[in-house]
């Protein structure tokens, strides 16, 4: 079953996504062995499917660029497994840039 997930960008991160803050997305079924989506997978998916410009300002390696905060259902991703967090249906995942403006 595909997962429906709400992705949000704020703090200036939205500037890299056509200034659109909220995106309702569907993550397709994975046909491979592990039929789960982690945040690591999601970041890769965002890079391929949502990111409009300057990917280096959002992605670094397989993670987000240091200085971008990630909140999963309003909880700091560091408390729920970070990159390895397994996404559930209807999760809300927020990326906040701390790097813009003062």
């Amino acid at each position: 079953m595909p997962l429906s997930v709400e992705i949000e960008f704020s703090g200036g991160a939205e500037l890299l996504f056509n200034k659109i803050k909220k995106h309702k997305i569907e993550l397709p079924d994975k046909m491979g062995v592990a039929n789960t989506w982690t945040i690591r997978d999601l970041i890769g998916w965002i890079k391929e499917n949502l990111l409009c410009e300057r990917p280096e300002l959002f992605v670094q390696g397989e993670s987000v660029r240091p200085g971008i905060l990630v909140m999963i259902n309003n909880i700091d991703w560091d408390l729920v497994g970070g990159l390895d967090y397994v996404i559930n249906n209807n999760d809300t995942i927020l990326f906040i840039s701390t790097l813009h403006g003062g």
């Binding site: 704020s10 200036g12 500037l15 905060l69 909140m71 906040i96 840039s97 701390t98 813009h100 403006g101």
Partner: peptide, 16 residues
Amino acid sequence: IVMYAYFKKLDYFSTE
């Protein structure tokens, strides 16, 4: 500071 603003829902402007 950013987390504080986020949880307090403070309204700020972010661009370069």
